[in-house]
Design a protein around this nucleic acid. Structure first.
Lengths: 334, 334
DNA sequence: TTGTAAGCGTTATCAA
DNA sequence: TTGATAACGCTTACAA
């Protein structure tokens, strides 16, 4: 009972069939002409003997890895957002269907050292960036190296191939709906101004107000908010200015705001309405449930993966915008 | 202005220095004797010319990949739990410090096809399973292939090298604290009985009651709960039986339970106390905030990564238990 | 201490 | 349609 554990190689196949490696290789890859009969013989043999070409050797010969690197931010602020995880599940559906794998690569603030290592070492054939920044060292680096990549999110740099949800329209629509109720005084609480999405959401907010015949009140808009202390200050300011509704750019801000309201005895939606430009399962089920937008993270991951695969195959790839968002009106806006 | 983009190889280094590849290889790897002078010369040259050995070629020669595969469940139930994502961030800290990378690999229910592909194709040197099951096809497969792996979570199979939080003690402690208040009638809502953790938590619950001089009331314990409908039914049953406190095994159940209570007009903690055996940032901030346990996901990922690296280096590795949990008492249990 | 040459398992070039 | 044979870039016996 010898358990031959050594993996069978292309050489073994060739020898067993009394043909050359070249022929076997051609039969499998489909490149180059092979006799019908020979091909069948090879295909049958490898099926029966469960031969799988070694992707490392293949990679060495082809200068490929059959891996896609996905870049995540490792900052604590983002570690809890299920967004990245959900994207990856979507990407995996595509990559695994193409016998490719996903490599996880972290950036820590400005530090793109790990990405650089992966690129220099050729450990992946392409890269997916999971967010776009105004000042974006990762994207700049990849461009400078001429390394294929796509970004999730809209970019200020037009050469970058991106896939994004239609955040602008979604935010515009939600804002317009809220503004055309009796409520006119809408306020905004925004995140990191180095994120392109922050500006997109702001533009959507602006357009939504315009559409409803209202205008942005600069005093009711603040970006770069990232602490509960700051949220609390702004809540007080906004209330003094007579804000009727506050929209948060994401649910971490929204979560903070809810807590501040509770501490200050501000009733939602009685004294103040609240909405978020990005959904969270848990917030949508909180008391009161929070009005928000919903995007399909799984889907956007899938699209990004499809695009980078095409790109690494040398095909032309165009930017994409996904329009399937949902506006979910809940108790927090009556 | 020729941009020599071709990567420099070990051959280039050797030729430039008028020595053989062998010597260069030895100087870099540290294996085999090399003259002090020669080594310095090599090291200096590769630093200046920014030479990095190609890991694919290295891998082909050594039969290694410098990748670790991390296995995630792709089921919808788990897609939202930040646990897996946080683990990976922890693992990455270790792997990247060792010039290794993380490959993501999904299992879908019983389907371990992708894991098998990665193992058969030798696309990783070792595997980390992120949960343990009673009936565990992934672990069984890896054992049968003799492929190195570690599991996060306690296993019923003693040969498996695991790293786990001390769930038993944590659950025991929380239960005991809740039971030694005036409350004696504790109920339990549990998840998938194929997960080892479900049983561990149950044992902890049992031990906690015992410690408090109480005993498990079988009618107040139900495992395998996974729908809101079922939670609602059980809430009614438990209330009829006079339950004073319900502990949920995780925060998805807890979230459902809170919603059911709201629907049924059950006041927390007035009519009923609630706690969870696994924490969620959002639940801890809900109204009322939920009493729960807290574990360090980042840390457990780190440990798992350290273990698999040692294992792939052929070192002996022992099971580990991490004792740093926190019991967080909040408003939901008064 | 250093070098030669044979792998590692593929693909690709060039003849036959 | 097929087959030698040389890459791909590195490690590692075995020699010197």
């Amino acid at each position: 009972m010898k358990t031959e554990n050594r993996k069978i190689t292309i050489d073994d196949v060739a020898r067993a069939l009394n043909i050359s490696k070249t022929t076997v290789s051609r039969a499998i890859s489909g490149k180059g002409r092979v006799g019908e009969k020979t091909r069948n013989m090879v295909m049958e043999y490898i099926k029966e003997n469960n031969y799988r070409p070694n992707p490392i050797a293949k990679g060495l010969a082809e200068s490929r890895t059959y891996n896609i690197a996905v870049v995540w931010p490792a900052d604590y602020d983002y570690m809890d957002l299920p967004f990245f995880q959900r994207c990856v599940v979507g990407m995996n559906k595509i990559t695994s269907a193409n016998d490719m794998d996903i490599l996880i690569c972290m950036t820590r603030g400005e530090d793109i050292g790990e990405l650089a290592r992966i690129v220099e070492n050729k450990k992946a054939d392409g890269v997916i960036l999971t967010r776009t920044l105004i000042e974006d060292p990762a994207a700049d680096y990849l461009i400078s190296r001429g390394f294929p990549f796509v970004s999730i999110g809209t970019s200020t740099n037009d050469e970058i191939i991106t896939v994004d949800n239609n955040n602008f329209d979604a935010c515009r629509e939600l804002t317009a709906i809220l503004a055309t109720q009796k409520t006119k005084k809408l306020a905004l609480l925004g995140g990191d101004p180095n994120h392109v999405i922050t500006h997109t959401r702001y533009k959507g907010f602006e357009a939504g107000l315009k559409q409803a015949g209202a205008r942005v009140n600069e005093k009711l808009v603040n970006l770069g908010v990232n602490t509960e202390r700051r949220v609390s200050e702004l809540l007080n300011e906004y209330m003094k200015l007579g804000a009727e509704c506050i929209i948060c750019m994401d649910d971490m801000l929204c979560d903070m705001l809810i807590r501040c309201c509770r501490n200050e005895g501000v009733d939602i939606p009685g004294d103040l309405r609240i909405a978020s430009f990005y959904d969270s399962k848990l917030l949508a089920n909180s008391d009161p449930p929070i009005t928000s937008l919903h995007f399909d993270d799984f889907m956007i991951g899938q699209r990004a993966a499809e695009m980078i695969l095409r790109l690494t195959n040398g095909d032309e790839v165009e930017k994409e915008v996904i329009d399937e968002y949902e506006v979910i009106l809940k108790g927090s806006t009556k």
